[in-house]
Design a protein around this nucleic acid. Structure first.
Lengths: 231, 231
DNA sequence: CGCCGGATTGATCAGTTTCAAGGCATGTGG
DNA sequence: CCACATGCCTTGAAACTGATCAATCCGGCG
């Protein structure tokens, strides 16, 4: 039962020379193998919707390459991005019958997916799978709790500094960060406008805390100072 | 936290005879009975800390009477309240070994508690318990996702309107809402100052959308208009 | 080369915070 | 029973942060 070497190390996403980003313990593979499910692949083009808020939650996904944003909208179009999902990350695991956020590909993206219902059935008989599901949801909750603090109480520069450290931790294996998302996405994640994000980045650049190779290629020069800025 | 109602087929064995405020479906009792645990009681005075952020998560709690706030602090004291926990709600279920937010009694409060470790052991052998734990964490996640949208993208009046509808749903059994928390707590929940909360409430009062019996006793006069305001 | 989308930068605007004063209810002691 | 202190809330005015409006600018690409 199981095997399948799912996940050869996931190839780099954004054309920069980087090491694979998949965590050493791959929960998705672990779950899939526990439950005897075979994961299939699917690809989405940049800005393509993967699922919409309120739609039945049929599948659980793992990003193989590319990146995904999940978000909620207000009636007049104001958008709050809840999370950026990078290579190796799992998403779409909304316990309950429907998705509570919309998911869209930020860049051309390939995912693996399994039927959510199968996972739940597996969880019903396999405690290990059930524990994995709980742990993953708990991880999302932890992120959301941290992000509420950011959105409710941090200043613009503190938000951007926090964002940079998060992205640095998650995708900068070589000291170089290749951001897959545009300034508007960053703003909608941080509860700011794209202009304010741009100004904060310029300010950090002026202070020598970071260096731009290009607008989305950033090298952090002083993580210590950045860490002090996040409050 | 844990304000959603799910249908649990499990009979209540340990539900408290002196807690008529508990919702008809009591997840906490359901879990306790599944796992064969006996819940003990404990009381806290107004503003007393129940557990601190970072402390080992020893117990899981249910409010019998009173109310609790959970929050995170920045280094300079700025506070973000993550949730208000009311009678019947469960809190302290942080998967992982330590609490990620501080919990404090808003008013004199009585709780039931069980050892978290016991719950996890129970979940390891009883899939029904495991599913309950997952469902409760998922409920917290849902709340956090909605709250991120509020904190990141709603205006002051929209936040207060959203807050009023949430509290109305959760504690107004008679059309009258008796808020247990002060304006500062509301502000720290909504990412606003207490003055801005006060001004928004006055504005809604001026518009006839609500009526004050006293500062914390509020009657909603026009839920429809309020619902339009939440955006 | 010139276009185009994304990013930066500048100037002004607006909403919320901050600072400050006063009101109102509750409780306490004379 | 009243005077006064206290905590919480409301309201006003000024200050400030981030938003909005408006030009460029820059890099990639047809």
């Amino acid at each position: 039962m199981h095997t399948q070497t799912i996940s050869a190390p996931v190839p780099q996403i954004f054309s920069s020379a980087r090491a694979p980003v998949v965590p050493s313990v791959d929960q998705f593979s672990a779950i899939a193998s526990c439950s005897g499910l075979v994961a299939t692949e699917f690809s989405y083009r940049k800005d393509e919707e993967i699922y919409g808020e309120g739609e039945p939650a049929e599948y659980v996904y793992q990003v193989i390459r590319g990146a995904v944003r999940t978000y909620k909208l207000l009636t007049d179009g104001r958008r709050q991005i809840g999370a950026f999902i990078l290579a190796g990350d799992v998403f779409g695991l909304d316990p309950g019958s429907s998705h509570r956020l919309t998911a869209e590909a930020i860049a051309d993206t390939t995912v693996r997916l399994v039927k959510r219902r199968s996972l739940e059935v597996a969880a019903g008989s396999n405690v290990k799978v059930a524990h994995h599901l709980w742990t993953m949801t708990a991880g999302d909750l932890r992120h959301a709790e941290d992000h509420m603090l950011l959105l409710g109480r941090k200043t613009a520069v503190e938000r951007v500094a926090t964002f940079l450290l998060e992205m640095d931790r998650r995708l900068a294996k070589t000291g170089m960060m290749a951001l897959p998302m545009c300034r508007r996405d960053i703003g909608d994640y941080l509860g700011l406008t794209l202009e304010t994000v741009s100004r904060a980045l310029s300010q950090l650049s002026d202070q020598g805390i970071l260096v731009f190779s290009s607008a989305r290629q950033i090298v952090l020069r002083d993580r210590r100072k950045l860490a002090e800025l996040v409050a």
